[in-house]
Design a protein around this nucleic acid. Structure first.
Lengths: 155, 155
DNA sequence: GTGCTTGCAAATCGTTTGCAATAGC
DNA sequence: GCTATTGCAAACGATTTGCAAGCAC
């Protein structure tokens, strides 16, 4: 996978430094939509000199070059996703987890729904990115009565 | 309209204080998805003792009671919308404006697209709120060549 | 050696919190 | 009078900025 990350970063037109490769690899292998802080904390032990600034810069560069997508489903922080296939995100307001939602059969369903949405745009509007977020209660949490609610697993 | 705001707030189960009524009214009459800061700055002259904390508290209370919706289309700050009919939001990455996008004929199209999206959720997931954001170039900006780009009109 | 990248420290800014003063039933 | 609401000041936390040192072609 290391080679693959290296190549993908290079293909996107960015210099595949050690830090960038590590960050992309982590994001790719941990599809839980980590935040900058989660990535930094996870990689720090292996890369002691890694700076949070670099994580910020790197993820922004990745997003600008279409290598990853940034997800605005939290009120305060940004999450990142190395999976750039069309899919939705679901945030459980009880446990705080963010789930991927794919349509059966090659994501066609979500693409269709999104294309439909774009037809409502007035003349002259150009779409670059479209994102659908759903908030609610996930399956694990919906079986637990609300008054037995566990502490939020935010972050 | 003042009476109407008062009633709507009361119906939502909140005490319609002077501040709350003013904030709701401003939001209702300025459908440009203002931020907390924009509302605070706009109302400050008329209500010199108004505090930003009150604007934060009020909007959060409104959102919790379904009177307004919070929009997470910015990376840093939250925007608010007094229009709670189903609609999409489009953010122009050039001028920074956030537009409402309605479907023709009573929003049925957007509701359908959103319902479709919810069918992709696994068993046991309960939807409470769904939001679609589109980023791109708006009609006013798309007629201007990129190198003649105006300064961003953020905030 | 030139330009891109890194990383530290400080600054910024949206938002929250603690708490005392105030207003409305 | 009691409770919800307000508003000030301070704290907080995610992100950005300035800038000097390091790295890669």
């Amino acid at each position: 996978m290391s080679d693959n990350s290296y190549l993908k970063i290079a293909e996107a037109g960015l210099r595949p430094s050690v830090q960038r490769t590590a960050i992309y690899e982590y994001l790719y292998e941990h599809p839980v939509h980590p935040t900058v802080d989660m990535i930094y904390t996870a990689l720090s032990p292996e890369y002691p000199t890694l700076s949070k600034t670099t994580v910020y810069n790197t993820l922004k560069a990745f997003a600008d070059h279409g290598l990853v997508q940034s997800i605005q489903i939290e009120e305060d922080k940004v999450r990142y996703d190395a999976d750039i296939r069309p899919h939705l995100h679901f945030k459980c307001i009880r446990c705080g987890s963010v789930y991927d939602v794919f349509a059966p059969e090659n994501s066609r369903g979500i693409q269709n729904a999104h294309s439909k949405c774009c037809t409502f745009l007035p003349e002259g509007f150009i779409t670059q990115k479209i994102q659908t977020n759903i908030w609610g209660i996930c399956a694990s949490c919906s079986v637990v009565p609300a008054d037995m609610e566990q502490p939020h697993a935010e972050n």
